[in-house]
Design a protein around this nucleic acid. Structure first.
Lengths: 263, 263
DNA sequence: GAGTGGTCTAGACCACCCT
DNA sequence: GGGTGGTCTAGACCACTCG
């Protein structure tokens, strides 16, 4: 609801810095200083045009810059608002320790309780697909070889935060509950261990990038929010890779935490 | 050098999808399909205006969208080019194992050899500063309490890829080579161990977000490139946090890799 | 100098949200 | 209906790059 009076300074016409950048600077400063808080409405484009005596496109370029930085999001017919962040989930490095082994939905539920958020899972889909190159390499099979794929979407307080797809070699999955939508208590890791593939370690490869259009749609991501891509490989005690899980997570909703030995 | 002939399709005026988004779709598809490769020049704005028979701002909005996604970067007076990625550095989870303990410049150099890139360090600065809240919390001291700060920038093949600032409690740093620009062989971790603080473990907290303006400047980041923020805490065998290192890394230049035990 | 992208103006019409 | 942002036009002048 704040009007442009929160923006005291005027444009320096002599400056090398473009007018729209100066306007973006004023707004950004108001956000970082807390004069504009999460959820607050920015002055309307019309107000900003009036305040700075500039054309509409100039104002819109300023707002565009703040959107790309992830500071604000616009809502058609309502206004432009300072981003409010989803609760941050901290993923600890011992989350797959056997003493509190949970997997998939169960793990997500337990982690979510820690931040006091409601957890949901939807878009569960189990199928057989050709292995993508990234996955095949980790499973030590040929790209395109058939694997079992289990994909799902996780939501926190009703907001989608994570897309995950597990890939399991067919010889480990066929004829087990791993092919079911609900793989049973303990999740697929328990099913794998029941078949004699005792898990020994996991390797997580972490990347960050901007989302694809499809990812942005499924995660309701506005501009300026990057994603984590986390590819986890599960190894059994014999050193065989028995599962690869490819996960896309909202960058603003997660903190990953890892412990490294010094020896 | 590709002309607009690589973009066969015309705009669907009847579509709900905005014209500039359809143009962006055509260009994005050409990039993802490999018709436009890293380093290739997109058709000029004038060519795209001609090809699609639209106004210049419409073309520019399309290009703006691709920039925000990290697919292209523009060069004033030259053209718009498909992004070419810097070599990716893989940071393995055993990189601080004592058997190949290297720190700071030495570690960066060793890691860089693995990808066949030249490594440099600049902007080294050692000072005493009030501890930021994130750091104080991890060092278990009061925010604002004075700590020794060691900051530097790392470059790969002459391109900046990482900004790092280490924070060390003053009682561990004063009167040692930790205060020097060059802390000596083995880096500050060796100096800390010489003082009886044998290192036991590290904890790394990983975040991703869009860069601040300052970070974008120091890392020469264009639009659409997120950063990793990695905060590493080093603990000695007595459980005391003896160093916190706050690092900003180009998201397109790093892959982080961690190993987790299953028990 | 020709070609390129960067900035800015001054309009227009539309779709969406709220009251 | 009035206010909001979304899209698009048709110009203008500028700064940078390259031959």
């Amino acid at each position: 609801m704040a009007g442009p009076e929160i923006l005291a300074r005027q444009i320096d016409q002599a400056s090398d810095r473009a007018v729209f950048r100066q306007i973006a600077d004023h707004l950004r400063e108001a956000i970082l200083n807390g004069r504009l808080r999460a959820g607050d409405k920015l002055p309307s484009e019309a107000q900003l045009m009036e305040h700075y005596n500039v054309a509409r496109m100039t104002v819109r370029q300023a707002i565009q810059e703040l959107k790309a930085e992830g500071h604000v999001e616009s809502q058609h017919g309502r206004g432009v608002f300072v981003r409010s962040r989803p609760p941050v989930k901290r993923l600890a490095s011992d989350r797959f320790a056997r003493r509190h082994r949970k997997e998939g939905k169960a793990a997500f539920l337990a982690e979510s309780e820690a931040v006091g958020a409601r957890a949901d899972v939807d878009m569960i889909r189990v199928s057989e697909v050709p292995a993508p190159a990234d996955v095949a390499e980790r499973l030590k099979i040929q790209t395109g070889e058939i694997v079992v794929s289990r994909s799902r979407r996780y939501l926190l307080d009703g907001r989608p935060v994570e897309l995950a797809t597990s890939y399991i070699p067919v010889d480990l999955a066929r004829g087990t509950r791993i092919m079911d939508d609900n793989p049973g208590p303990g999740g697929i890791y328990e099913r794998l261990e029941e078949q004699g593939h005792q898990l020994e370690r996991f390797v997580e490869d972490v990347y960050t990038r901007m989302p694809t259009r499809e990812e942005a749609r499924l995660l309701s991501l506005g501009d300026g929010t990057p994603v984590f891509r986390l590819i986890r490989t599960a190894y059994d005690v014999e050193g065989r890779a028995v599962e690869v899980c490819d996960t896309i997570m909202r960058g603003d909703a997660y903190q990953l935490s890892y412990e490294l030995p010094a020896h």
